[in-house]
């Protein structure tokens, strides 16, 4: 009898060890998921170039278009970055340049160049939740939200996704109370995010509509941001994507604000 009890106990013990089922043991720590997702979504390669087309639709279905060339260079992986955005459309913003030096420990430095005036303007940009060029994307969607700005909680693991709930550490600084994020388990690409307002109503949705592997990096080539409360959406397409062009540090300086580098021409 004792033997049976012992055997049963052993079985149970092993069963506990073996539970949850195989594979689940590979579930990384939530902070690691967040860190990897951040690197996959915003830091792939050493640098990046793409032609970006945005179609902004309002609640009445009227559309506007933005087209720009985007250059990105990582100063250090997961940290400081430089962005250079060269506008092609619409015609009234053609040849304007928006440049960002992104930092984690202080506000980003932002510049705008207005070619008709030959004016290099410094932009006071502490609010990263402002709409990017009138679209339904905000600045943070373009350059990434600092992972240290939120508390992260792994709420569910499905066959294909990690589902994380992110709560801002400083809720007064943002318009949302939390957002839920779906991260592809295979490549760690965030593919969906739902934002909840202060009354806990879902009001904003971001989706990766198409992810492709480019030079070995999973890359979102089409995404959509939808305003669930007010209506309207923006669809962004990335074309002519290239990684690791060897972009020089000097491109992200006043020199190339005043005269575009060959990488965008």
């Amino acid at each position: 009898m004792k033997k049976y009890i012992l055997a049963l106990g052993l079985l149970l013990f092993c069963g506990v060890l073996a539970w949850p089922p195989a594979g689940a043991a590979e579930i990384p720590d939530v902070e690691e998921i967040v860190d990897r997702a951040n690197r996959v979504a915003y830091y792939a390669g050493e640098d990046f170039r793409a032609s970006v087309r945005m179609v902004i639709s309002d609640a009445q279905g009227r559309t506007r278009e933005r087209q720009l060339i985007m250059l990105r260079r990582d100063v250090n992986d997961g940290g400081e970055q430089q962005f250079y955005l060269y506008f092609e459309k619409p015609a009234d913003v053609r040849k304007m340049v928006f440049m960002v030096h992104k930092f984690l420990d202080r506000d980003d430095d932002r510049w705008l160049y207005l070619p008709a005036l030959d004016l290099v303007k410094r932009i006071a940009g502490s609010d990263k939740r402002t709409s990017f060029v009138g679209s339904h994307f905000v600045y943070e969607d373009v350059s990434g939200r600092g992972i240290a700005e939120d508390n992260h909680e792994l709420v569910e693991v499905t066959d294909s996704h990690f589902i994380l709930k992110n709560t801002p550490k400083d809720p007064d600084n943002v318009e949302f109370s939390s957002y839920t994020m779906w991260i592809d388990r295979e490549n760690f690409m965030p593919v969906k995010a739902e934002y909840y307002d202060k009354q806990d109503r879902k009001y904003r949705l971001m989706e990766a509509l198409e992810v492709r592997s480019i030079q070995g990096h999973p890359t979102v080539v089409k995404s959509r941001a939808s305003d669930l409360a007010g209506g309207g959406e923006t669809v962004t397409e990335f074309n002519d994507i290239r990684y690791d062009l060897g972009l020089a540090d000097s491109i992200f300086t006043e020199r190339y604000l005043r005269r575009p580098p060959r990488e965008v021409r």
């Binding site: 410094r122 006071a124 940009g125 502490s126 609010d127 939740r129 402002t130 709409s131 318009e175």
Partner: peptide, 12 residues
């Protein structure tokens, strides 16, 4: 001195 005092509202 220029500052964004609220979303889409700057004062200088």
């Amino acid at each position: 001195y220029e500052r964004e005092v609220a979303t889409d509202f700057t004062a200088a």
